[in-house]
Simulated scan of single mutants.
Amino acid sequence: FEHILDQLVEIGLLKHTVPLADFLYHAPSAQWVFWRPWFMLSLAATVLILVLALYLWLCNDRLSKEVALRKLRESEIMQLAQRDPLTGLPNRLSLMNRLREQIAQPAPGCLLFCDLDDFKRINDNFGHSQGDAILCQLAHRITSAIGHQCFFARLAGDEFILLLPGYNLKQAHDVAEVLRLVMAAPFETDGQTMQVGISIGVSHYQSGWSAEQWLIQADKAMYCDKGVALTALVEQSG
Rank of each mutant, 00 (worst) to 15 (best):
K170Q: 13
K170N: 14
K170F: 07
Q171T: 06
Q171K: 07
Q171I: 02
A172D: 01
D174K: 09
D174I: 15
D174W: 07
D174H: 10
V175L: 10
V175G: 08
V175Y: 14
V175I: 15
A176R: 06
E177K: 11
E177R: 12
V178K: 08
V178W: 03
V178Y: 03
V178A: 09
R180V: 04
R180F: 00
L181W: 05
L181D: 04
V182S: 05
M183L: 08
M183I: 02
M183E: 02
A184W: 02
A184R: 10
A185F: 07
A185P: 01
A185T: 08
A185S: 14
P186G: 15
P186R: 14
F187M: 00
F187P: 00
F187D: 00
E188A: 14
T189N: 03
T189H: 12
T189P: 00
T189K: 00
D190H: 09
G191L: 02
G191V: 06
G191E: 01
G191C: 05
Q192N: 11
Q192V: 15
T193K: 12
M194F: 07
M194E: 10
M194P: 00
Q195F: 08
V196S: 05
G197C: 05
G197H: 00
G197Y: 00
I198C: 13
S199Y: 02
I200A: 00
G201S: 13
V202C: 15
S203N: 07
S203W: 01
S203V: 01
H204C: 13
Y205I: 04
Q206W: 04
S207Q: 15
S207L: 11
S207C: 14
S207I: 14
G208L: 15
G208H: 13
G208R: 10
W209K: 05
W209V: 05
W209R: 12
A211E: 01
A211S: 14
A211L: 02
E212R: 07
E212I: 07
Q213E: 13
Q213V: 06
W214L: 07
W214V: 06
W214M: 11
W214Q: 12
W214C: 13
L215T: 02
L215F: 04
L215C: 06
L215V: 04
I216T: 11
I216A: 10
A218R: 06
A218V: 10
D219H: 00
D219Q: 11
D219G: 06
D219N: 03
K220G: 14
A221V: 11
A221E: 04
A221M: 10
A221D: 03
A221C: 07
M222C: 09
Y223A: 02
Y223W: 00
Y223D: 02
Y223V: 07
Y223Q: 02
Y223G: 05
C224N: 11
C224M: 13
C224T: 03
C224D: 08
D225W: 01
K226R: 04
K226L: 06
K226Q: 03
K226T: 01
K226M: 04
G227A: 09
V228D: 10
V228T: 13
V228S: 09
V228L: 12
A229C: 09
A229Y: 10
